[in-house]
C-alpha cells in the first residue's frame, strides 16, 4: 500500500513537471532550461503554470509558461480567433497599449500568435512591458509570457523558451 502511494506521488510530481537533462517540463511540453532562473509551480484544474525569475532581478522580469487543456474545442481556435481573444484579454489592463498581433511558427513547428503590451499592474504605478505568446498544442494552449519593468531588448530567454518548446515524447 505504501509503495503504491509513493509511486502515485512520484507520478504526480512528474506530471507537475520539473527540470532534467537540461530541459524544463510542464505537463506534456518541455523546453530548454533557463540557467540561473528559479522556478515556482502552481496547478489548477486543467492548467499548469510555471513562473521563472532570475536570481538577481533588477529588471523585475519573469517568464510565465502556462499549459491549459481546453479539450476538443481547441480545434476551433484559429489564429484569427486567438488574436482576437488575446487583444481583448489585454484590453482591460490599466493604461494598456498593445501592438498588433503577429502570427508565428516556432522552430519546433508549433503555430500561434504574439502580442506586446505596455500596462500598469494593479496597485502599482510603474509601467510594465509584456510579450505574450500563445501556441496551439493539440487540445491544449501553451502561453509564454515575458513580463518586465525594464525589459531586456533582446528578450533572449523568451526566445529560447518559445523556440525550444516542444511536445514531450
Amino acid at each position: 500500500m505504501r509503495r503504491a502511494v509513493a509511486i502515485g506521488l512520484a507520478v504526480a510530481a512528474l506530471g507537475c513537471g520539473r527540470s532534467h537533462d537540461g530541459e524544463e517540463e510542464l505537463g506534456t511540453v518541455a523546453f530548454k532550461a533557463l540557467p540561473g532562473w528559479q522556478r515556482s509551480d502552481t496547478r489548477a484544474r486543467n492548467t499548469q503554470t510555471a513562473v521563472f525569475t532570475p536570481a538577481v532581478n533588477s529588471r523585475k522580469e519573469s517568464i510565465t509558461v502556462i499549459r491549459t487543456e481546453l479539450g476538443p474545442v481547441a480545434a476551433k481556435y484559429t489564429p484569427e480567433m486567438m488574436s482576437s481573444l488575446l487583444l481583448r484579454a489585454h484590453s482591460a489592463l490599466a493604461q494598456a497599449k498593445s501592438t498588433p498581433v503577429a502570427r508565428l511558427t516556432t522552430a519546433e513547428g508549433l503555430t500561434g500568435v504574439r502580442v506586446e503590451v505596455d500596462f500598469v499592474p494593479p496597485s502599482l504605478t510603474q509601467s510594465y512591458h509584456r510579450v505574450h505568446v500563445v501556441l496551439a498544442q493539440g487540445t491544449a494552449l501553451v502561453h509564454v509570457l515575458y513580463t518586465a519593468a525594464a525589459p531586456e531588448a533582446e528578450q533572449a530567454m523568451l526566445q529560447q523558451v518559445v523556440n525550444t518548446l516542444h511536445e514531450e515524447s
Partner: peptide, 26 residues
C-alpha cells in the same frame, strides 16, 4: 463591460489568473 469582456476572453484562452498580475514582479 470592458473588464467583463476581457475576463471572458482570458477564460476562453484558458487563463485562470488575472492577466494584470500574472508574472508581475513588484
Amino acid at each position: 463591460a470592458q473588464e467583463a469582456g476581457a475576463s471572458s476572453a482570458a477564460a476562453m484562452l484558458g487563463l485562470t489568473t488575472p492577466l494584470g498580475s500574472t508574472g508581475v514582479v513588484p
